[in-house]
Amino acid sequence: MSRFEDIIALGLRLGVSLSILFILIGLLLLYAYTPSGIDFSNFTTRGISVIGILYGLPRLDGMSFILLGIVVLIATPVFRVLLSVFHFAEEKDWLYVAITLIVLIDLLIALLVIPSLVAG
């Protein structure tokens, strides 16, 4: 039991730290490289895909780093649920394996299916 809690805690900390790291790098890059006159304050996530963000990274595009940080942040709870599935399976606690799998499937539906339904 004790090892499991420590792994979950570590996973959460890792996700949050990575996310903040990317955001800070992104802010620094924006600060260093943005020509004056460009205003990013009204920039939104509309039309931005994860693939597009990855393409922006090698170009050292600050906004892409910030967006990657936000994606990592959103993925952290999903990762935490996934870790729990493995743990409960290891403990042979099948009731909780089933419960955690349902939550995982719900989450994936909410993240991957619902947006395309709503945005049409």
Binding site: L27, T44, T45, I74, P77, R80, I114, P115
Partner: peptide
């Protein structure tokens, strides 16, 4: 709440209701 909020976040992303530059300092 992290899981509940993550579930709701994708729609806000697609609709463009997330402003990364304003969010970045808040998150720090």
């Amino acid at each position: 709440i992290g899981v509940t909020a993550a579930a709701g976040s994708a729609i806000y992303w697609v609709m463009g209701y997330i402003q990364p530059l304003l969010l970045a300092p808040i998150l720090v």
